[in-house]
């Protein structure tokens, strides 16, 4: 600071810059850049610079991301939905049964799968908002129930293209067109279709949260339930719908999971809810409700997606991956905390 006037100017610019960095979006972006930077340094003999690596990182994060889109709305209301992983498995099983075994066309399978997911969400939502059961407990019950139902419907084994006949032999059928379509890539192989589905889900959730009255209601409910009830917010209705929304998105994620695995696995999606919650929280949406948003969650999805990819291309042993992921989540959330907290 020898040159006074220039220093002044620099300080002013710095404050604008630091304000940007310290905003929730800036903090989430910083966490993402940190992970990308680690990737640039540990690039696994240049694998990180290949476009296919980034395409695959986004594809792998997409199923979690779709869950996180629904989860954001529930978390904004100060709730939580632990059932999404199980609902994903249930829908994957139903979807594979409809598409592979019954050979139903995609335009029936997709809406039907979303309805199944939505119904699960509706049950959780009703339990939470009408029966006043705590979200943790209500969705925990749904998590166990949906997993059981998935196992029951599939008979405990995967619903695959090997269809068991009455005499115990297997007949091999083709992978349905719907599954091939979802697991394909567009734009000269540069983007996976599941990534586009994630972007679409993120956009729809963003519009719902920030441009619709219902979205405002969700923030109000999460911020102060009693105050919003007194000011005429339809609390029960708004909250139930958030869980339905989350269930529908878990359904969409289930379709994507089944399409990518080419089968419906009743054991799929174990602990996916935790990854989805981590994505939302790393983005900067507060678990205590009323604060956050879809843009932040999208950054959180990228952060975790890239973290997994960087660890994977470097073939980091499992034990180290778990420890590093734990440490990095803490660092990311710590950078994310706003000054008020």
């Amino acid at each position: 600071m020898i040159d006074q006037p220039r220093g002044d100017l620099a300080t002013k610019q710095q404050t604008t810059a630091s304000r940007l960095i310290l905003s929730p979006g800036g903090r989430a972006a910083t966490a993402l850049l940190l992970v990308v930077f680690v990737g640039l340094v540990f690039n696994a003999d240049g694998a990180f610079f290949k476009s296919a690596t980034h395409r695959d990182a986004l594809r792998q994060a997409s199923v979690y991301g779709i869950l996180a889109c629904g989860m954001t709305l529930v978390i904004v209301t100060a709730g939580i939905d632990l059932a999404v992983g199980s609902v994903l498995a249930l829908v994957a099983v139903c979807c594979a049964t409809m598409a592979i075994h019954w050979n139903w066309p995609g335009w029936i399978v997709v809406p039907a799968s979303m309805v199944i997911g939505g119904l699960c969400g509706a049950v959780s939502g009703t339990l939470v908002s009408r029966q006043k059961i705590q979200p943790f407990i209500a969705t925990l019950a749904m998590m166990v129930f949906a997993r059981g139902l998935a196992k029951y419907l599939s008979g405990g084994s995967k619903v695959s293209t090997a269809v068991k006949q009455a005499d115990g032999t297997f007949e091999y059928v083709d992978v349905p067109y719907l599954f091939r379509l979802i697991d394909s890539r567009v734009l000269a192989d540069s983007v996976s279709v599941v990534t586009l589905i994630f972007f679409a889900c993120a956009t729809i959730s963003w519009i719902a949260l920030s441009h619709f009255r219902w979205g405002r209601f969700l923030y109000a409910v999460g911020g102060n339930e009693e105050a919003s009830r007194l000011s005429g917010v339809p609390v029960t209705w708004a909250r139930t719908l958030a869980y339905v929304w989350c269930g529908v998105f878990a359904g969409i994620a289930g379709i994507c999971q089944a399409a990518q695995e080419q089968q419906g696995d009743p054991e799929a999606g174990v602990a996916y809810e935790l990854i989805a919650i981590a994505m939302v929280v790393i983005g900067g949406t507060s678990l205590s409700g009323g604060r956050g948003g879809m843009m932040l969650t999208t950054l959180g999805v990228f952060t975790i997606g890239y973290l997994e990819k960087v660890l994977s291309i470097n073939a980091v042993p499992e034990a180290w991956r778990l420890m590093l992921t734990g440490v990095i989540i803490v660092i990311a959330v710590q950078t994310q905390r706003s000054r008020r907290a």
Binding site: A44, D45, A47, K50, T53, D56, Q60, Q260, S312, A315
Partner: peptide, 10 residues
């Protein structure tokens, strides 16, 4: 599938 993606990239 995830791990194989990484191996293919590398």
């Amino acid at each position: 599938r995830k791990e194989m993606d990484s191996a293919l990239a590398r």
